[in-house]
Design a protein around this nucleic acid. Structure first.
Lengths: 226, 226
DNA sequence: TGTTAAAGCGTGAGCGGTCGCTCACCCCAC
DNA sequence: GTGGGGTGAGCGACCGCTCACGCTTTAACA
């Protein structure tokens, strides 16, 4: 899993064209999935010939991977932007939730790509991308969970890594629920057809859920009750 | 989206053969995904000719759907079995978590099929299956959350539907984390390579997380602290 | 009981469409 | 004239699906 997924010719190409190719490819891959997307169609829509496409990329898969890398760095940037201040943990959570809800059409294609790799089963690729993508959010979440714990903002009786995992699981599912067709429908089954008109309610309820999970330990509350 | 997805000839066929065909198909679909699975190969592995396969099914998609229906009713049965007693909410949660961890090879193929439909985007199919599958767990979870709330076992200041959604999101992600390649790798990134040798720890930490989220409301704890 | 026709079970060569990818070729700059 | 940018017809592999055919069972009739 090395990092070069295009031929030199693509790097030399005009930046506008590079962009056009990548964005068109992301459109097709996120809309149809890797298997159903047609590289001949992508070339046509991007305004170049297939011949040239193959001067730029070794294989269809390489093109897909380049799109993935693009999506990853974009999503990475969003997380970084949201988390750069030194807010308390719940404020960070709130910012992340709101960022997820405001995911625009542009970003939602990235999320769909992400959902697409979720079905990969080539061992090496899975490892490479899980490390690359999940590593980003893991670093972000585990880092501030640990600090919050040290500073006494959250309960002391928890395993940070597992709690970071639960936290990310909730956010990831929410992300998919706002962008991917099946998850959207699932969201409606659970919360009603009008859930997409109630962003504020989702924020508040999830924060409620997280706040209690993060801050109140069973033993402490029992002590208080005595 | 009607419910007959095979021709009469398949219903008349020998039960052993029916089983062989369905199980072989589930193997292939769950291992390779819908697009990459080859119906000619499935026929060969199941010990029948493609000609006969098409006397049994209209299309490859119909075969896939029959597999899905099979998987759904199987997963439904598991949930039912786990939830039939009238345990308290955390005991139910614990049973579900342990059931997920003990998912065998046989069941894990069903989970992979479920993961596969997660990327469907045909509007009608998405609606049909989201309703059918998520409806099962929604009924189960929302029902006992509501009862628990009425009986005062859990906090009163929450929206049951959203909390059921968060609950299912955690369980669904855990389910995938024990069965699907990418999610397994993600689980390792968050919790370390040895997380799969620590089932008990996962149970305890998730229960801790859920117990606090479900039972302690911010206002109540603040009152106690005074 | 033997003959025959109809209906279903079962086969697999192969059709037809799709799509990843190649290659022979053109054009232009240096 | 050499090298890179650019083209698109078309090759070849794959795969969903068909169809002409063979075999067996059922049953109606002489």
């Amino acid at each position: 899993m090395e990092s070069k997924h295009c031929k030199p010719a693509f790097e030399r190409a005009d930046p506008d064209r590079r962009n056009k190719v990548i964005q068109t490819a992301i459109d097709e891959f996120s809309g149809l999935g890797f298997e159903n997307a047609n590289i001949n169609v992508i070339a046509k829509k991007a305004g170049i010939s297939i011949g040239l496409m193959y001067k730029y990329f070794e294989t269809k898969e390489d093109l897909f991977i380049l799109c993935l890398e693009e999506a990853i760095s974009e999503l990475h940037a969003v997380i970084e932007a949201v988390l750069q201040s030194d807010d308390k943990i719940l404020v960070r959570a709130e910012k992340l939730i709101r960022a997820i809800q405001q995911t625009s059409g542009r970003e939602s294609r990235y999320v769909k790509l992400y959902n697409e790799i979720t079905k990969m089963s080539d061992e090496k690729q899975v490892r490479y991308y899980a490390d690359k993508i999940e590593g980003i959010s893991y670093e972000a979440y585990a880092g501030f969970l640990k600090r919050a714990k040290e500073e006494g903002d959250i309960r002391s009786d928890m395993d940070e890594r597992l709690f970071a995992f639960f936290f990310d699981s909730l956010l990831m599912t929410l992300q998919f629920s706002y962008t991917c067709d099946y998850y959207r429908e699932r969201f409606k089954v659970y919360c009603g057809d009008d859930i997409f008109d109630n962003d504020e309610k989702v924020v508040q309820e999830l924060l409620k859920f997280l706040e209690s999970a993060f801050t109140f330990s069973h033993d402490d509350v029992k002590k208080l009750e005595k």
